[in-house]
Design a protein around this nucleic acid. Structure first.
Length: 217
DNA sequence: ACCCAGGGTCATA
DNA sequence: TATGACCATGGG
């Protein structure tokens, strides 16, 4: 049964790396901003951009809406793709404020909230799910490139499933536990930083001497 | 000098 | 639906 293997991977990762304390950020809104800025970008660069916003008192949806696009882009510069991300962040903030911000959005059921997020230009499936899980505490499993690679290498997914299919698989096999989903995704990212990206066997063998992913049956 | 990072959009076939 | 081009900084 795959259900057991999916849980085993989690337990081994947790034993190896421990609590990851995700998502870094002091407020739900900061988490949402981080989710947009971290698209295909190292987190260390995102931190610099968020810091730029904080020091200017711009870590606020209304302030971002008011800001000039070129100013916003300059503050976001360290996170890369800064012109695109400035637009995406503005799009997101306009939607967020129009929708009544956190309190109103939190009244929506998860599927409706997810659909609403996906309507924002610049918010795709992974960003939406980051926000759902880490800002709204909804039991949504975030799929990323690391998740694909790890589970493909473990032979636990058939590599050509799209995002939605893979998310459905995880959410079907695992108990919908927000804290566990939170930790699971964070652990996969943590583990990814520990392994070679190019050798398919690395992920499951290098850690054999301490590899949490080894011995999954 | 190259590779890639906690993706998404858009144009093309 | 399925690839490919494009976006761009910073650390290894």
């Amino acid at each position: 049964m795959k259900r057991r293997q999916y849980n085993t991977v989690y337990n081994k990762l947790f034993d190896a790396y421990g609590q990851q304390h995700w998502w870094p950020g002091d407020s739900p809104f900061e988490i949402m901003v981080g989710a947009v800025l971290t698209q295909n970008t190292a987190w260390s660069n995102v931190e610099k951009a968020i810091h730029n916003l904080v020091t200017r008192n711009k870590l606020d949806p209304h302030a971002i809406i008011r800001a000039r696009l070129d100013h916003l882009a300059n503050w976001l510069r360290p996170s890369g793709y800064f012109n695109i991300k400035a637009e995406r962040l503005k799009n997101f903030c306009r939607w967020y404020v129009d929708a009544g911000e956190y309190a109103e959005l939190d009244k929506l059921e998860t599927p409706a909230l997810r659909d609403a997020l996906l309507e924002v230009k610049g918010v795709g499936p992974e960003t939406a799910d980051d926000i759902l899980l880490y800002a709204f505490n909804r039991p949504v499993f975030v799929i990323d490139a690391y998740t694909r690679r790890l589970f493909a290498r473990l032979g636990l997914v058939n590599g050509k499933q799209d995002y939605e299919q893979m998310r459905a698989t995880f959410e079907r096999l695992l108990k919908p536990d927000v804290d566990m989903f939170n930790e699971y995704h964070a652990l996969i990212v943590r583990h990814a930083k520990n392994v070679c990206r190019t050798r398919p066997t690395c992920e499951t063998c290098v850690l054999a001497a301490g590899c949490p992913a080894a011995g999954i049956e």
